[in-house]
């Protein structure tokens, strides 16, 4: 299963970005293969609709779970319709790597 983790930077040592739609990077982690893909978020500075556009982006990567600090109000129903699980994890000091370690436990 692929999991999207919002990241403040381009490495696994970066912290978990607390905002979903306007995060700096998405780390797409594959729990089966251990593969990692890091994508810059093109919607970071979108004037409007960053949340839905970001859902669209991670959904196109076949992600089934998203881990971030906060999710906006517009996207809950979209995630439901795509059967993507939303995990709220308000830990700004945690690194992306530590989040991946938790997934592997």
């Amino acid at each position: 299963m692929k999991v999207a983790i919002t990241s403040t930077g381009q490495s696994l040592d970066s912290n978990l970005d607390q905002r979903f739609g306007r995060c700096a990077f998405f780390v797409i982690y594959d729990t089966e293969t251990g593969g990692v893909e890091i994508l810059p978020n093109p919607n970071k500075d979108a004037e409007e609709g960053a949340g839905p556009a970001s859902v669209q982006m991670v959904a196109s990567k076949d992600v089934k779970k998203i881990i971030s600090g906060e999710f906006g109000v517009k996207i809950k129903s979209l995630l439901d319709s795509l059967k993507i699980q939303m995990v709220v994890y308000k830990e700004p000091e945690k690194t992306v790597k530590s989040v991946i370690d938790m997934l592997n436990k």
Binding site: V55, A59, S81
Partner: peptide
């Protein structure tokens, strides 16, 4: 960003 489009999920 007003048209939410995920073709793989037919959404």
């Amino acid at each position: 960003n007003a048209i939410f489009y995920v073709p793989t999920a037919k959404v």
